[in-house]
Design a protein around this nucleic acid. Structure first.
Lengths: 182, 182
DNA sequence: CTCAAGTGTGAGTGGTCAATCACTCTATCT
DNA sequence: AGATAGAGTGATTGACCACTCACACTTGAG
């Protein structure tokens, strides 16, 4: 029970953390339905059976991953907002969008959220996605003071980026791809 | 072989058409990975085994459904453009967006496209989605004469609508939902 | 040292899914 | 009527998947 001293075994809490981090990559490829628990376990470097000791079932695991992504994206927005000293809504929003765009390098994080929206047929997942959007919208609104119209445009832009990342539009050399990538 | 006379049996071509139409509803709920061929067959009123005579495999079936949705959406855009007599880009674009918004009533059509983007890990599906976007962007560009910036905004708005439909944001009574729904 | 609590795994299990196949039924042509 | 070609199905199969369980190892406390 003690927390002192060096240990070879990780604590369950530490393991849950690494699972959350590595599962992002696994779920980003084929989403909730298309990703097996064995793949997630392998990505985390543990056995599939132990995964079921850390999380009650696949759905709870996926919801935890979604929450984790939600937090990291909000951190990213906060960082962007902090960097923009100004209080002008448009300026803050642009800084946030810039920070978000840098997240695209970390494609997987955004793709998980897209996959989560696609798995909304499961009530628990739908709820997690709604909460994620609620937090993000309210954070952006509070931090930027932007209007509804601006906020809607902000999220529409982000979503388009996500989908373009999903179909690897960056690899396509054609007018339509250049137009959408902006 | 003859085509004359009344028949109880449908032709394979007719069946393929009904499958394409009814499969939209089936795939819209859980996407490519989460929908079984049995569900698709049941929605079309045929046996699962006959589904495999009409389409070589599940992937080809899904790609055919995506192509079908792509066509119907383009028809919808065309209808909107035709209704707007004016040649002003913004006017035509608004008319198209209006026609597209009416499609949201037919939620399933749009959701299939969202699910398709999420199933882009399969090369054939990714290609179908890219072609779909290519056609739509070029059609919108040609019909409206809008700038890249306007087109990007047009698609970002549409995508946001799709995702909000996916998580049933219309049922949520909260500020964030009202903001995003506009 | 011993023992309890916690970490971790290998070997299943029941169920489901995509794909196949042998088979029947229907319609048309000669 | 008999033959032919296409429409349509029930039963099955092999692979895979979420989930379980009995068991082994590690660690720190008394």
């Amino acid at each position: 029970m003690s927390m002192t001293g060096a240990r070879r075994l990780s604590t369950a809490e530490e393991r849950r953390g690494t699972v959350l981090r590595t599962a992002i990559k696994a779920f980003a490829a084929r989403g909730y339905y298309g990703t097996t628990t064995t793949e997630v376990a392998k990505a985390a470097g543990i056995s599939q059976s132990y995964l079921y000791r850390l999380f009650p079932d696949k759905e709870a695991l996926f919801v935890a991953v979604v929450d984790h992504c939600s937090d990291r994206i909000r951190e990213c927005h906060a960082e962007g907002a902090a960097r923009a000293g100004g209080t002008e809504p448009a300026v803050v929003l642009a800084a946030m969008a810039g920070a978000y765009a840098r997240l695209i390098d970390d494609r997987d994080l955004l793709l998980v959220l897209l996959h989560a929206a696609c798995a909304s047929a499961e009530p628990a997942i739908r709820e997690a996605v709604r909460v994620c959007y609620a937090k993000q919208v309210e954070y952006v609104r509070a931090a930027s003071g932007a209007s509804d119209e601006e906020i809607r445009r902000f999220f529409g832009d982000g979503l388009l980026s996500n989908v373009l990342a999903g179909i690897d539009a960056g690899e396509v050399d054609a007018p339509w791809a250049r137009t959408l990538l902006g």
